[in-house]
Design a protein around this nucleic acid. Structure first.
Lengths: 229, 229
DNA sequence: ATTAAAAATTGATAAATATCATGTTTTTTA
DNA sequence: TAAAAAACATGATATTTATCAATTTTTAAT
């Protein structure tokens, strides 16, 4: 199960691909692979991180607790993404909590290797910068959606997002099943409101369910709703 | 009025301070200083930028048009900040429009200089990366505020923000006066709702006005409201 | 200085969303 | 497998916020 970073495909999707052979070797020698069960935390808001986590498998929610006690999910991160990078780069405590929403396998990489490579390998630094620039744009988009779209539109978008990013199984059900509470925390709404909207979507034939699994039955309708027709 | 980057104090506040003497000289030789009147655009969403803008004076709103035709202000940028950097780094079209909310003086720096320095000077790249990491954290915070606080709380926060970041004049009025519409676009609400809340704050003695100028009369009350008491 | 246009304001009303209460179903645990 | 806990669901209601309409005030243009 343990494998070398040098031969890890996951790496190709993130900034680690800009590391040199030697740098990668050091990372590989010091990395620790961990299994994290659904529901378990990887790190918590406010902690000081000693490294970053490269996701080999599974999906994590990155969220922030607000003053009123609600958790806002800021981002979902999955295979190939590196989390904790922002706080290591900025030399600050993490501003988000990371909790597994499915069983995960992650590689912990001590920050020394990241920091020293940042200082010496401009290709790597630039690669990290590009990823961060991308994340920043996404954050802007999320903000605009949040402030300008209705809850119903945001719920519709959330399901489309889940389909586009994590796909569906052979029977057409979404691969990633989030609890109603998690969906509410992505969308930024009360759980009951979220549930009501899901019920409405089911009645209208936009969604179908089987147990906990959800299936997008009318993608076009959801899209039109999300875009605002 | 024209001056050399090498001796510009503004530079100390942004990533340009990590440039070497020679790099800075090239930048200084090719930069163009521009004056932008209140209300005029610096660049528009979707454009391809040929460089970045370093703000010497004045304040700009960075906003994004949503599908329903409303402008969401994502950030206010002022003296010392470099705008357009994200899109130059990511080699993408700008995702935000920049419009002056007060008279401005900016220096346009052709992107070649930024890009080549990014490739060769890891200190500079790291400095840009740190700034971007900071912006990303701020974006997360804004998102959480937006989704978890009421409009009233967000309006209160907006005024506190204006005071903390741009200060007040000798008579206690905010240095930066935004139109009601701009405030609404920061807060993400309808203009009428925003005006009603400002009226309420005036009645309660939290704010005072004189013509267009606004004065924070009871900062503690606004803070408590914003924090949620 | 006069007129036109834009910005600010207020009221009335409708629509969206949250909250509270309660019941059901599903999952977990002893 | 029974009991407890957690997740899901729905109704009733309150609260928040948006929308529409009309008016006043301020700013800009001729």
């Amino acid at each position: 199960m343990e494998s070398r970073c040098e031969s890890c495909i996951i790496r190709q999707f993130n900034s680690l691909r800009a590391m040199s052979k030697e740098e990668l070797k050091k990372v590989s020698d010091s990395k620790v692979t961990k299994c994290i069960k659904k529901g378990e935390p990887i790190f918590e808001e406010g902690e000081k991180l000693d490294g970053v986590y490269c996701i080999r498998n599974g999906i994590s929610k990155l969220s922030k607790l607000s003053a009123n006690g609600k958790d806002q999910i800021v981002k979902l991160a999955s295979k190939g993404e590196v989390i904790g990078q922002r706080s290591v780069v900025a030399e600050e405590n993490v501003n988000l909590s990371a909790v597994a929403v499915s069983d995960m396998e992650v590689c912990f990489i001590p920050k020394e290797h990241i920091v020293s490579t940042l200082r010496t390998n401009p290709n790597f630094t630039l690669e990290v910068l590009r990823h961060m620039a991308h994340d920043l744009k996404e954050a802007d988009d999320v903000l605009v959606n949040m402030s300008q779209k209705s809850v119903k539109q945001r719920v519709a978008e959330a399901f489309l997002y889940l389909k586009n990013n994590y796909g569906e199984d052979e029977d057409g059900f979404l691969n990633l099943t989030l609890s109603r509470e998690d969906i509410s925390n992505v969308v930024g709404t009360a759980v009951e409101s979220c549930i009501r909207i899901i019920s409405e979507f089911k009645k209208k034939g936009f969604l179908k369910t089987s147990g906990k699994k959800i299936c997008i039955a009318d993608e076009r309708a959801l899209k039109e709703l999300a875009e605002g027709f």
